[in-house]
Structure formats: C-alpha cells, structure tokens
C-alpha cells in the first residue's frame, strides 16, 4: 500500500502489506504526476504573477533602499563637504574678524595718539598763554604798585618840602593864571 492508500485506509492498514515501501503503484504515480502538473500549472498561472510581482516589489524596495542609502551617503558626503566648507568659511571669517579687529585697534590707537598729541599741544599752548597772562598781570600789578608807591613817596616829599613860601607862590600863580584867562 502506498501513502495514499494508507491515508485512505485511515491508518488501519498495515505498512507491511504495501507493495513497495517507497514507490507507489504506476497508476497512482501517473495520476499523481498529472495532478502535480495541474497543481503546478495552476500555481504557475495564478500564483506566479503574484510571486513575480512580490519579487519585483521586493526588488524595487531593495533598490529603493539601496537608492536611499546611496542618497544618504551622497547627502552625508555633501553635508560633510558643507561642514568642511563652513569650517573653511569660519576660518576665513575668523581671519577677517581678526584683521578687522587689528585694523580697528590700529585706528583707535592712531586716533588716540592724535587726540593725545592735540590735547598735549592745547595744554601746552594754554599753559604758555596762562604763563604769559600771569606774567603780564604780575607786570601790571608791579607797575601799578610802583606807581602807587612812587606817587605816595612823591606826595610825602612834596608835603614835607612845600613850605609856606612855595604855597603862597602856588596861590599867586593860580590867581594870576585865572585872572589872565577870560
């Protein structure tokens, strides 16, 4: 009994009663082969496209994954390039900022020196003017003091030396001078 016979017998058949333990009977082999062909044909006809489509989809999905990975690699490379470029830009910006700071520092230093020189010149001029003014003022005060002292001394000398005769002479001179003017 072959395997089909065994199945049909529901397990009640003794395996020792089979014709051959491996090979079924010829008829069974024929219709079994025909049934297998039919089944394979049906599978080929109906399940084949679906399987082919599944394979194509899988292939497409894998390709998409590969493309995505490739794109990711490309993007990563571009990003790396941009980062490198940005790093280069940062270096250039840093250099530019440093150069600009150096220039500004130089300008500030130059302006500061010029301003200090101007202020120093103004201070010197003002000090010179103040000194000259003070000298003039002291000279004026000294001259005024000398004049005042001279006048005081002259007055005292005159008061001491103007005797009665001189006084009378001055009075007579005044009377004569006034009398002669009309």
């Amino acid at each position: 009994m072959n395997i089909y016979g065994l199945v049909a017998a529901g397990g009640d058949i003794d395996p020792s009663e089979s014709v051959h333990w491996l090979w079924p009977p010829a008829a069974e082999l024929i219709y079994g082969g025909i049934a297998s062909l039919i089944i394979f044909s049906l599978l080929w006809k109906f399940a084949g496209p679906a399987a082919k489509k599944g394979m194509a989809d899988r292939t497409a999905r894998i390709q998409a994954d590969l493309d995505a990975a490739d794109a990711a690699v490309t993007g990563a490379r571009q990003e790396a390039e941009e980062i490198r470029r940005a790093a280069g830009d940062i270096d250039a910006e840093r250099s530019r900022l440093l150069a600009e700071a150096d220039a500004q520092a130089a300008d500030i230093l130059s302006d500061g020196r010029a301003r200090i020189e101007t202020e120093v010149a103004e201070l010197e001029a003002r000090a010179a003017a103040d000194a000259a003014s003070m000298g003039d003022r002291l000279g004026d005060e000294l001259r005024a003091e000398i004049a005042s002292l001279s006048a005081e001394v002259t007055q005292r000398l005159l008061a001491e030396t103007l005797d009665d005769a001189a006084q009378q002479q001055m009075i007579e001179d005044f009377i004569q001078k006034v009398g002669s003017s009309s």
Binding site: L162, D164, Q167, Q168, I171, E172, F174, I175, Q176, V178, G179, S181, S182
Partner: peptide, 21 residues
Amino acid sequence: RSAVALTDDQQTRLAAALANA
C-alpha cells in the same frame, strides 16, 4: 579849596580873577 589859608588880599584878588574868568 586851598592847603593853606588865604589872606584877605588874596581872597579879593582871587574873587576878581574868578569873576573875570
């Protein structure tokens, strides 16, 4: 105004001189 006093004669002559002036 004078530093010393004027005599009467000086006052008379001075008054005349001032009147003239």
